[in-house]
Nucleic acid binder design. Structure first.
Lengths: 209, 209
DNA sequence: CAATCAATTACCCTTTTGGGTGATATTTTA
DNA sequence: TAAAATATCACCCAAAAGGGTAATTGATTG
């Protein structure tokens, strides 16, 4: 069985180039070409393609919104964003919306063919440039991690529980100490992190992820 | 100039296999092999390798901790984790610690060679399996994003400010309404999100970022 | 050994938060 | 148009959080 691929891309030339290279492969075929978001949103579901190559910057709709809506309705279909370079927020929004892969248009066409195969196998093809952005997203939290080194083991445990939404009383019970002890720990945590309430402390603690 | 590669891996056979394949390449050489974490931590800095292939599960130290410490001291060196399959928390910890790439030992050796080249060029080589985990991490937040659709625009604004650590009073001032109005909004937010305090609400709100 | 740090408990006090009820004006929607 | 949702304000009350001070014990460290 050939991999059934649909293309959503409003640049006519690029769309056609993608179709040509896909149809040239022995293991995949292009079953639809869309040149705007509205058509794609209406007709993709019935087509049941295996993989959709989706541009983000369409004139009428955002490719991210389309993916967000369709991933609900089409669990058997894999969406790969294939777009010009975007800012980090766009990238992460697309990933959150349910895209399985993210390529940039600068990638050579054979990379895109490989990506379609990988996506269909359940992988997550990403351009190196995109993968790097994603990694940087994680590494930005490193600074915060270091400020946490100031805290003692007990304090970190308390902060962890606090971040889960537990009340002072609940933390005290869980650790079998009095609530005054917990208050003391939390006071010390606030002083060390230079904050004055739960939320600020947790914001320094979390960021992650 | 050849790419200077160091290996930190306590499986002697795998370590040697890596050295062999690296030395076989015309554009890279293996300048050091370490079989435990302690030695690596002491001697890597002076060696100034371009790329370090780092196992996570060493007997004596965690590869993650080593990377965390050395990325500070060695800004010119790129760290690529190369390890057996780990749980998500390990993967993200490694990325946060400053690793630029993450491979699994199951990858064919020529993938690892490619990864060294990519890492040295400033890219972020990741096994497809790892890239997929990273994507899933983003997609897990999709459900939470949807629960936020229950909230009105005003409520989302209030929740946003709440998440930044502002007090009721400060939010009221910023939006030029009374504190009672803010209390009302927050009560409605808690009811809709089925939570009973700030932290729980913010935890539902934050995961989307 | 003395000093420091960590963990623990206690008590005092104020501010903040959260829950309940009710009311009014505006906007949206069925 | 009538009903529902939204945004606004008010008052009451109890629980939770946060800041200050003080003291004891044990571990660590210079």
């Amino acid at each position: 069985m050939k991999i059934r691929v649909a293309i959503v891309e409003d640049d006519k030339n690029y769309n056609q180039a993608l179709k040509n290279i896909i149809d040239f492969q022995h293991d995949m075929e292009c079953v639809a070409q869309f040149f705007n978001g509205k058509n794609a949103l209406q007709k993709l579901e019935a087509l049941e393609p295996d993989v959709v190559l989706m541009d983000i910057q369409l004139q009428d709709l955002s490719g991210i919104d389309i993916v967000f809506k369709l991933t609900e309705l089409m669990p058997g279909t894999t969406f790969v964003m294939c777009t010009s370079f975007e800012n980090d927020e766009k990238i992460f929004s697309a990933l959150r919306a349910g895209a399985s892969g993210y390529l940039v248009k600068g990638d050579p066409l054979d990379k895109i063919i490989q990506a379609i195969q990988e996506a269909h196998k359940g992988g997550a093809p990403m351009s190196f440039a995109i993968a790097k952005r994603v990694l940087q997203h994680f590494q930005e939290t490193k600074v915060q991690v270091q400020t946490l080194l100031l805290l003692t083991v007990t304090e970190k445990e308390v902060l962890e529980l606090l971040a889960q939404g537990l009340l002072y009383k609940e933390i005290a019970d869980k650790k079998n100490v009095t609530i005054d002890t917990i208050k003391k720990h939390i006071g010390n945590i606030y002083r060390k992190l230079q904050v004055s309430n739960k939320i600020e402390a947790i914001n320094k603690f979390n960021t992650k992820n």
